Computed example of a mutant assay.
Amino acid sequence: MSVLIVIPARYASTRYPGKPLVELRGASGVARSLIERSWQAAMSVGGVNRVVVATDDERIRAAAEAFGAEVVMTADTWVNGTERCAEAHEKLGGGYEVIVNLQGDAPLTPHWFVEDLIAGLRADPEAEIATPVLRCDGATLNGFLEDRRAGRVGGTTAVFGRDKQALYFSKEVIPYTGKTWETEPETPVFHHVGIYAYRADALAAYPDWPAGPLEKLEGLEQLRFMENGRRVLCVEVSARGRQFWELNNPEDVPKLEKMMAEMNLD
């Protein structure tokens, strides 16, 4: 299967304007932009044919080309990264069997998350889209709950059936557990890792579907697939001792920099 990774990036984020150009300092103090760190994560994935940044902003284009990325300019009317990926694939002439949306706010994404995701989609011919889920330990789950108590939207959680088909995704912490977690290594809550692998036909169809009520309420693009009866496969991935977090809010910058220092990542 030919694989394309698209990193969608927009400047005009509602919650965090200019987020792709925010700088993060690694273990040695070297500062690199969020979009560059996300591109580096994409370039470390094995078995990929091409990596591109998809944006509607000239500032992001200039920054990405300066560190060597290939850039596809897309419309400024798209409301999410999946729509932007669909246009980017079309502009590149199509032809890729699997298109991976590696969102530009997850610079700590280990390469095996994406490799396992692609393998999961390949192994399930009925799945049209796949996305990774990571079982929360007690400390991570407590972080989710703390964000919600403070009125912040932090990580997204996922619930799925025995067949790994997604039942729902939410910015609330689901399922409800009714207890406080300490340092337990495993909890019943799964962190949805914001990466998607699409088959080309499903991705091409996506922009033509109207956003449904659940997508509008949650602000989660993957719910559009579910609201249109498409099967979303949840692929469980393992952290292997690696810390993982997305940059959702300005408060996450020191959190990510601390993680990079602890993992000795530049």
Rank of each mutant, 00 (worst) to 15 (best):
G120I: 02
R135F: 07
A63E: 14
H111S: 15
L247V: 15
P107G: 02
T156A: 12
N80I: 12
V235W: 09
E65A: 07
A150K: 14
E70F: 05
L4T: 08
I7K: 05
L102H: 11
D57G: 07
A127F: 00
W181C: 07
R84G: 07
R224I: 00
R230Q: 08
T82V: 15
P17V: 12
G81N: 09
P8S: 11
V52L: 08
V235P: 03
E218R: 12
M1I: 06
G151N: 08
G29E: 09
E221L: 04
A106K: 02
E186I: 03
T140P: 00
R10L: 09
D163P: 00
N248H: 12
V114I: 15
K255T: 14
W245G: 02
V100K: 06
R59Y: 08
D57R: 08
A211S: 10
Y196A: 15
F144S: 02
Y196K: 07
L247I: 14
V22A: 10
L141G: 06
P8R: 08
S238W: 09
S44T: 09
S28Y: 02
R230L: 08
I129K: 00
G241N: 11
K179I: 07
S2R: 15
A31M: 02
E126W: 01
K171F: 13
F190V: 03
S238V: 12
S33L: 03
A62Q: 12
F244R: 04
G155N: 07
Y11N: 13
T156R: 09
P210V: 06
S33W: 07
T156K: 03
Q243I: 01
K91M: 13
L214R: 10
A158S: 11
R148I: 09
Y206P: 03
G138W: 07
L214P: 00
D105I: 01
F244G: 03
P132F: 11
A106P: 00
A202E: 04
W112L: 09
V30G: 01
N264E: 14
R152E: 11
C85S: 14
Q40G: 06
V133Q: 05
E262Q: 14
M73W: 05
V193Q: 01
M43S: 13
L203W: 07
L203H: 03
F190H: 13
E23A: 04
E87S: 04
P107L: 05
C136H: 06
V48H: 06
G94D: 11
V193D: 02
V159E: 15
E184Y: 11
R135Y: 08
W112R: 12
A63I: 02
A261N: 02
F169I: 06
I195R: 00
V232L: 07
E115A: 11
A69H: 05
K19N: 05
A66E: 08
L4W: 06
E184T: 11
G94S: 12
D56K: 04
L203V: 09
E227P: 00
D116R: 13
R148H: 08
A66P: 03
P207Q: 11
M260G: 01
G95I: 10
S28Q: 09
L21T: 04
P188Y: 11
R224P: 01
E36F: 01
G68E: 10
R50H: 13
E184N: 13
A86W: 09
D56H: 11
E246T: 15
A119I: 10
G143W: 06
N49C: 10
G104W: 01
R61W: 06
R240S: 13
R122T: 09
